[in-house]
């Protein structure tokens, strides 16, 4: 347990315990390892990436824990987390569907694919399906324009996609989610 020289409050050890309990080991190790580095505050974005990789989103508690442990004002941590599109402040479904709305996809009918996804899932961009399996987002170009229009599910890219292929695609991920559930 480290004591923070900059915040000699009576209850810091107790507070620190609480904050540390909110973050996974690898993130704590990363923060601890960087503490004495020059410009360690510049690793805030990298830290937030790790937290989001672990939890799938950045909750208010996570932001506060990062702020306290890195000794960066919560206002700044929140400012950074809300500035960048990549950070999500709400929990999301098991699979994140990113519909590419870049130029190449747009001129090749990405809007129709997006509409079909919304119809099938019954949700709009930024929402999560009731069963918690899918979240729907739009993105600007995933850089696979040759396959336009594309949809990225998790880290997998699918394309070229016609609206008619959407139900089968969703079905395959539903099956994967069910399989995972069965294992648990």
């Amino acid at each position: 347990m480290t004591t923070c020289p900059h915040c000699p409050t009576d209850n810091w050890p107790e507070l620190e315990r609480g904050y540390r309990a909110m973050l996974p080991e690898d993130v704590l190790a990363f923060i601890d390892g960087n503490r004495d580095r020059e410009h360690s505050e510049s690793l805030l974005i990298a830290t937030l990436h790790m937290v989001q990789d672990h939890f799938g989103h950045l909750g208010p508690g996570h932001l506060e824990a990062v702020a306290q442990l890195m000794q960066i004002p919560l206002a700044k941590v929140t400012g950074v987390a809300t500035f960048y599109h990549y950070f999500r402040l709400q929990p999301r479904g098991r699979f994140l569907i990113n519909v590419c709305l870049g130029t190449a996809c747009y001129v090749k009918g990405a809007e129709k694919v997006a509409q079909k996804l919304m119809d099938e899932l019954g949700i709009h961009f930024g929402e999560t399906s009731k069963d918690g399996v899918f979240s729907l987002e739009s993105t600007r170009c995933v850089g696979t324009c040759g396959l336009a229009p594309v949809v990225m599910i998790g880290e997998e890219v699918h394309g070229p996609l016609a609206p008619g292929q959407v139900p089968a695609l969703l079905e395959s991920y539903l099956a994967r989610a069910a399989e995972e559930m069965a294992k648990v």
Binding site: G79, V80, Y84
Partner: peptide, 24 residues
């Protein structure tokens, strides 16, 4: 250093802010 989905960070002064851990 990783970006985090802000187009403006391609602009060089914004990119520097982002590497510094700030809003880009």
């Amino acid at each position: 250093r990783l970006g985090a989905g802000a187009f403006v960070c391609g602009e060089e002064t914004a990119l520097i802010r982002s590497i510094e851990g700030e809003r880009g």
